[in-house]
Design a binder for these strands. Structure first.
Lengths: 90, 90
DNA sequence: TTATCATTTAAGTAATTACTTAAATACTTA
DNA sequence: TAAGTATTTAAGTAATTACTTAAATGATAA
């Protein structure tokens, strides 16, 4: 979970995740939504991958990126734990 | 929500939030749980405050910090939205 | 008032981050 | 094979971040 928060801290990476909500995309398709270089997007994708927020799947010459919902589940649990505890204490 | 992710990206700030789960604490009480200077903790508290993850309440000479559960609720919604959308697409 | 305590603000610094361009890798097709 | 496409890796840099110490603010109590 440590890497997850760092990964989510960047707006470009959050936008990438939002794009992937609507379905898998290749690295090139993702980068076409941004002004910055493909190289930079590739580096962002690597950070998302290390945080396990996405995984990749090579199909020939293309690499498809997919949301990994497991880590989003963990993030919900982590967050709800604050709400539960906080409400209990009141 | 923009500032929330940046605020959560730092382990010291996440630990501060975890401490506050068990009830409100003064800036001094919070800093006693860390090796670093009170000044540094004060700066972390300010970042948490700007992200509205906590709010402060001055009581005489002391400043009490409290979790703001509203923003945690928003974080749950933001995250669940990925899970819902992702599951629908499969 | 003066001293002390709790906390923040200011100013400086080393480490990290997000980007760039250029080169490398890997796959496809002529 | 060679050329072209998709993507990543490498190396460098400017901006940001997390810390430090010292000074400032504000409340309490002698």
């Amino acid at each position: 979970m440590k890497d997850v928060f760092k990964a989510l801290a960047d707006p470009t990476r959050r936008k990438i995740l939002t794009l992937l909500k609507d379905g898998d995309l290749t690295a090139g398709e993702i980068s076409s939504h941004f002004e910055m270089s493909k190289s930079s997007i590739s580096q962002h994708l690597n950070i998302l991958k290390q945080a396990e927020l996405v995984y990749d799947n090579k199909q020939g010459q293309f690499i498809y990126y997919t949301l990994n919902l497991t880590v989003f589940q963990e993030l919900v649990s982590w967050t709800i734990d604050f709400i539960d505890k906080g409400e209990k204490e009141q």
